[in-house]
Every structure is written in C-alpha cells, then in structure tokens.
Amino acid sequence: MFKFLLQHCSLVTGHLTTKVDVFSFGVILMELITGRKAIDDSQPEDSMHIVPWFRRVHLNKDSLHKVIDPAIDLNDETLASIHTVAELAGHCSAEEPYQRPNMTHVVHVLLNLVDQWKPSDSNSEDI
C-alpha cells in the first residue's frame, strides 16, 4: 500500500508549482502517513490541525511510529521510507515560504523512494 501511495504522490507533484502548493502537498503527505484529516474536529484543540500537531510528533522521533496509519504494513524498510516522507512533509510545511523546498527537490526525494520500491522482476503481478 505504501508503495502505491508513493507512486501516486510522485505523479501529483508534476501539477504543483507555487510555495502554497508545496505547503499543501506537505499536508497531504502528513495525511497519508497518519491517516488523519488536515483538520480533525474530534481531536483536542491543540491537536486539531495536522501541521502543528505533526511538527510536535515529528520533533520527538520516537513518537512518529505511534501515529503512523495502522493500515500501512510496517517493516524496517517501510518505516525508513516513512521517516524520509515525514522529513519531507515537515520541510514542505515550513512556516515561511522561503524555507520550503521547490517541487524539483520534492520530486527527487519521492522518485528515489519509488525506485527503491519497484519490484525487481518486471513481469511481477504487483506492477
């Protein structure tokens, strides 16, 4: 499932151009990692908005694994990829637009992960 998400995220990045889009894409990455909505009224006020909540969680590296969407099948390789995507999501959602990466950088990071998750057998049914 995580492989599927990464491949589709890399397709979406071709349509994003501005720093606002980069911020929004960071939010989407956070939603994919956690399974939470960008704004979740069912959460306490300090956790309602995903960006500040995710920043706090991400600062404490040990707590990130506790908020990963349970639908993602975790193993060491997947967890390493999630940490990379979480780092990227944090950069994309930086408070100041000049601190956010451009989409070329985002695509490069995601393509490296997609290449890592490609099946080694091109005739595989998983393709």
Rank of each mutant, 00 (worst) to 15 (best):
F2R: 02
F2H: 14
F4I: 12
L5N: 08
L5M: 13
L6K: 07
Q7K: 11
H8P: 01
C9I: 14
S10K: 10
L11W: 07
V12Y: 07
H15L: 14
L16G: 02
T17Q: 11
T18L: 06
T18H: 04
K19T: 10
V20N: 07
V22C: 05
F23P: 02
L29E: 00
M30F: 07
M30A: 05
E31M: 12
L32F: 08
L32S: 01
I33N: 02
T34M: 04
T34A: 00
T34W: 09
G35H: 13
G35C: 06
R36F: 09
A38M: 05
S42I: 09
S42C: 07
Q43P: 01
P44E: 13
P44Y: 09
E45T: 00
H49I: 11
H49C: 07
H49K: 04
I50K: 03
I50Q: 04
V51M: 08
V51P: 03
V51I: 14
W53S: 05
W53T: 02
W53F: 14
F54G: 00
R56I: 05
H58E: 03
L59Y: 12
L59M: 13
N60D: 14
N60E: 10
D62M: 11
L64A: 04
K66F: 04
K66E: 14
D69S: 08
D69T: 12
D69V: 12
P70Y: 06
P70F: 05
P70Q: 09
P70G: 06
A71R: 15
A71N: 15
I72V: 15
I72Y: 04
D73K: 10
D73E: 15
N75V: 04
E77N: 13
T78I: 15
L79F: 12
A80H: 12
A80E: 10
S81W: 06
S81R: 13
I82C: 03
T84V: 14
V85W: 08
G90K: 01
G90I: 06
G90Q: 11
G90N: 15
H91T: 06
S93G: 04
E95V: 09
E96Q: 12
E96N: 10
P97N: 08
P97K: 09
R100I: 05
R100P: 03
M103V: 15
H105D: 11
V106I: 13
V106K: 09
V107L: 13
V107F: 13
H108V: 05
V109I: 14
L111P: 02
L113K: 11
L113E: 07
L113H: 10
L113T: 03
D115W: 14
D115T: 00
P119W: 03
P119I: 01
P119G: 09
P119N: 13
S120A: 14
D121P: 02
N123S: 15
S124T: 15
S124N: 13
E125I: 06
E125T: 11
D126Y: 00
I127Q: 10
